[in-house]
Structures are given as structure tokens and as C-alpha cells.
Write a protein that binds this DNA or RNA. Structure first.
Lengths: 298, 298
DNA sequence: GGGAGTTGTCTTATATCCTAGACAGGTAGC
DNA sequence: GCTACCTGTCTAGGATATAAGACAACTCCC
């Protein structure tokens, strides 16, 4: 909430060390250079080095042992939930995990032009705009802003939306979603999103924009989603089909892949924790995600 | 290079305003509140407000007209290259765009444990590690770190790698890539990556980890890729197959989608520019990307 | 046991960011 | 022309981050 702001030089060093840890250059269990050494190397004071290390420690990336040294955590990796990309739109059946939704905003208004364009709305057509935060085991992991054409949005209530996935509501209303188009990028957390997702301002986020249309090509839903990369990531399995000369990669349908090749999610490093003063609660949050699992509702 | 460091309060306000612009809350062409008003609203001084606006202006998101006001740029969007996800592994044929590679590092060594695990290496097996930066029209957009088992890496030279895509080299060596598994997340730019990609430290990045294996399930390539989200993003088209009750979404193979539903890439906002003192060069960089195009080599 | 090196915690001085306010010059509307 | 408001620019003083150093307590190794 009060979000201890992060100085500049300390932040720089923090990102530098995080890069080294996460890339494997500093292997798990290895000892970091001593604080005086780091300070000299980087041309900063020891106080600054300590601030950077404080942040890393709060994230559980390092382990500080007084008198002994600072070490890279053995289980530095905080595994995010992994959503299969070819299955992104599937139902909300969440196996073994408790999910929840918080409806932050709900209104009808004229949409931003970019949304109107993407949905192919009639000139002047209004939309229902809703902002939701999804939780898993009580921890927020996604911030969703959706726009639905007013005529469609009116077929369900605000309460419906707070309890039922949007695509289910649409289907229930007789809407036939036929195609979807989605783009994935990355961005930084602004104050509002950071607050809602329990992050520091300026934390990295996975961004997805999806447009769902019906058979006629008219848009029925515009979704803008922001995900905490330490709690959520996209996954995809591909197989090569076709002859040797014509190499062609195609997505592997659904969960047919097994837990085979483990792409390591360590690179989606956790974002900076809250205040340095209470690393405990933060660490608890981070530890709560470990499973490696499919079929997550967006 | 010297990278004007970004203060904290100014950065906070910058992110706040960027959020509003990019979400459409502040429509293109609209006038922002005056600097004194913003300062009062946010409880900061006008100097701080100006710093935030300086950054937004350097990114081309706003337009400042002395005596008149500050306005949201009409063409705020800087469209990134869009890579079709189901086509990510395809050849490097770059239609109409000049691409280039810079080989930053090339060596043989023991890989990080996470990589060894993902590639299913024999205990003690070494890997060839290379770091490359890909450019498009002279502007860097991706930072690639690859690990290849030593026995495979030895089948081509350092010069080969600087000129030819890795997968082509592997195929030329008789390696049959059969499966691939990739995970997509987001992270922040550390000093090295920021330098290589021409970004400010702490800018958001799209992160992808991909493991390619042969028929036997042995890994042949481990790729860790970081992309500038303002220059590169992933795209995917899905169609619904199956009956009404059994809703099932499947990726649409390759470029069959047309330019239909335009997911707007505006949300992958450009990252912070360089020094406030020279916004010109930055703006020029940003403007150089506009096309909307497929089939980009990763 | 002793010594070297480590983290944890102070203190004081400096550099940088931020605040508060004033003033100049431009634009727009009356 | 006049007024109201805007951005651009400067100043001086307060708040915060960083630098430089000292000291204590601890761990590990010899």
C-alpha cells in the first residue's frame, strides 16, 4: 500500500544482480561477492549495495547469513502458473486451486476509439466496460479490462459478471464466439494496476489483448489483460509436421505434451516486494505458488 | 549510453499518465489538465510534473503546445512487429525488412543447472553458449541467449552463427528438431540487456524461453529471448471448433487470418526514451516501426 | 584461540531530487 | 486590446538518497 519507493542506483544494482542470478551466471547456492567488494566494483557505497540486496532478499532470491556471506537461494525459482496458450480460452475449471474474482468497476459508456475499431462497432455504439481482478488462492494475478457491446452486455447483470466468466455469460446469451485474435506484449505497472495486483509501481507485466468475434466477424468482446509474470505465464508446445525440406511447426493441441521439456520459468523473475521492513509476508505470498499446471482461466 | 536516470516521483506520475493515455481514458487529441492542476491533484510540485511530461513527450505520446496546453498525440501508437505465434520457428525470410544480427558472445562452458535440466544433458556435459542481438532496420529488438549441447555446437562455426539462424544450422548438421516447448513471460531490463537493446534500465521486456528437442526427446537448443515490446510482440488467431456444448478453441494455422480483428498493440507502450535532452533521436527511432507484418525470425 | 572476512548498524557529509514560488512569453476567447 | 490560462524557465530551500567510514557481532578456517 505505502509501497517503499525504490531509489535509482540501488535499483540499478538490484536489476544487475537479478540478471546474473536468473541467468544462471550465479548458480544456486553460490556465494555472492562481499558487500564491500560489490560496492567497489560498482562504484557505489555499501549502503546502496545493501539496499539492492535487501530487495533481492525480500524476493527470496538470496539468503543472507551474518558472518558468513550472501548466497543465491537454492530454490530461487518461484514457478508461475502456466497456462497453455492453445487452451487459453477454455473453461474456468480450476483443478485443485481456489480462484476468485473482484469486480472493480462496471459501467456503460462510449469506448475508446481503439476498442470501437477492434470490435467493429457502429458509429456511436456504446459498450459495457468492466474491470476485474482474478485471484488464485487469495493472491491476485491478473487485471482484466473488458469491453462488450452494450446490446450484448445487457443480457447479463453486474452480479453475473462477478461470479461467472464472461465467455460463459456470452454463450448463455446465445452469442456464438467463433474467432479470437490475441496479441501478447509486456508493459509496466501503473499505480492503479500495481495497487490491485499487490505490486510495486514499475513492475513488469505480461499484457494480452484479445478480440473475440462471432461468425459474422462482429466483435463480441474486447479483453485487455495484465498478468503478474511471477504468478502467470503462457506456455505452448509445438511439433514439427511435414517433410524435412518443408519444416513447419504447428501447435500441439492441448495437454498432449506431458511434463516433458521443462522450459524454466525462472526467467520470469518475481517483481519487487513490498516494504523492506516486512519481508515475511512477502515471502509467504511468493511461496504460495508452486504447482505447475494447465487449464487456467484468464 | 549515459542513460538519464529516472527519479521516483516523476516516474510514478509518468506511469500513471501513460496508463490513462494508453487505456483510452485520455482519448487521442484530448487536452491534459494543466501542469499546475496535475501538480495539485497528485500532490507533487510542478517541476516533477514537467519531468513526467518530458518523458511522455520524448516517447511521442503527448504534444506540448506553449500557451495552449498539452495534448494526447493522435498517432500515439507505435506498432510493434507482430510475430505469429504458431509460426514463430519459421525461416528468416524477412519480407521487405532488413534484419541483422550482432554476436555478442560465443563460448563453450558448463551450462547453468536449469539449462542442463531442460536440455536433458548428461551429467557434466558442456554447452555452447551464444548471445546475439537481432536488429530490424538497424534497430535492435531482441536479445537472445542460446545454449546448444557441445557435440552439436561443434558442427558449425562462430561465423556461421553470426550469419545464419540457429535452427538452419542445426538442420544442416543433420539434427532433426521434432518438438519445441516455449514459455512466455515478462521481465525488466538489466544494465547489460538495456545497453544492448538501447533501452533504459528497468524497461519492460517480453521474455520467452524455448526448448527444442529431437525425436528422442533430447534437447538440441535452449533459447532465452528478450524482446522490446514496442518493437516486437506475439500474435495468435484462434477459431472455435466442435459443437456448441463442447467449446474448444484451436490455433488457426499460420497466416490464414487476414488483417481482420485488429487487436490494438497500443498497450505495449514504448519504453522510456533516452535522455530528456535529446528527444529527437528517440522519436526518430520510434517512428521507424510502423508496418504490421508476419513471419519474423525470433 | 586467533585472525580474516562476513553481515548488521550506526554516524556525518555530500549529491541529487523535490518543493514552492515567481516571472516571461505564447495562445485563445471575450 | 484585454484577460485568463497555458507552457517554458529560473531561483532558493527542504527532503531524500548516496558516500565514506567506524564499530559490533558473527562465522569460518587455520
Amino acid at each position: 500500500m505505502d509501497g517503499s519507493v525504490e531509489p535509482l542506483k540501488a535499483r540499478r544494482l538490484y536489476l544487475l544482480l537479478r540478471e546474473r542470478i536468473v541467468s544462471g551466471e550465479l548458480a544456486p547456492g553460490a556465494r555472492l561477492p562481499g558487500e564491500p567488494t560489490l560496492a567497489a566494483e560498482q562504484g557505489v557505497s555499501r549502503v546502496t549495495v545493501r539496499k539492492a540486496l535487501d530487495t533481492l532478499a525480500a524476493e527470496g532470491l538470496i539468503d543472507r547469513r551474518p558472518g558468513s556471506g550472501t548466497f543465491v537461494r537454492e530454490v530461487a525459482a518461484v514457478r508461475p502458473i502456466v497456462a497453455d496458450l492453445s487452451n487459453v480460452l477454455s473453461h474456468l475449471v480450476q483443478m485443485g486451486r481456489q480462484t476468485g474474482v473482484r469486480l472493480l468497476s462496471f459501467s456503460y459508456a462510449a469506448p475508446p476509439e481503439a476498442v470501437a475499431e477492434a470490435l467493429r462497432l457502429e458509429p456511436g455504439e456504446r459498450t459495457q466496460r468492466s474491470v476485474r481482478v482474478r485471484l488464485i488462492d487469495g493472491a491476485p494475478f491478473s487485471y482484466l479490462t473488458t469491453h462488450v457491446p452494450e446490446r450484448i452486455g445487457l443480457t447479463y447483470s453486474e452480479a453475473d459478471l462477478a461470479a461467472t466468466p464472461l465467455l460463459t455469460l456470452l454463450e448463455r446469451s446465445g452469442i456464438v464466439a467463433e474467432r479470437a485474435s490475441q496479441t501478447i506484449g509486456a508493459t509496466l505497472a501503473g499505480p492503479e494496476v500495481a495497487e490491485a495486483l499487490g505490486l510495486e509501481i514499475g513492475s513488469p507485466l505480461l499484457a494480452m489483448t484479445r478480440v473475440v468475434s462471432d461468425r459474422s466477424g462482429r466483435g463480441v468482446e474486447h479483453l485487455h489483460a495484465l498478468y503478474r509474470p511471477d504468478r502467470y505465464s503462457f506456455h505452448m508446445d509445438l511439433v514439427r509436421t511435414g517433410a524435412a525440406g518443408e519444416r513447419q511447426w504447428n501447435p500441439l493441441p492441448n495437454g498432449a505434451s506431458g511434463e516433458a521439456s521443462g522450459a524454466d520459468p525462472r526467467f520470469n523473475a518475481p517483481t519487487k516486494g513490498a516494504s523492506h521492513k516486512r519481508p515475511k509476508s512477502l515471502a509467504a505470498n511468493s511461496r504460495s505458488e508452486r504447482a505447475h499446471q494447465r487449464r487456467v482461466i484468464p
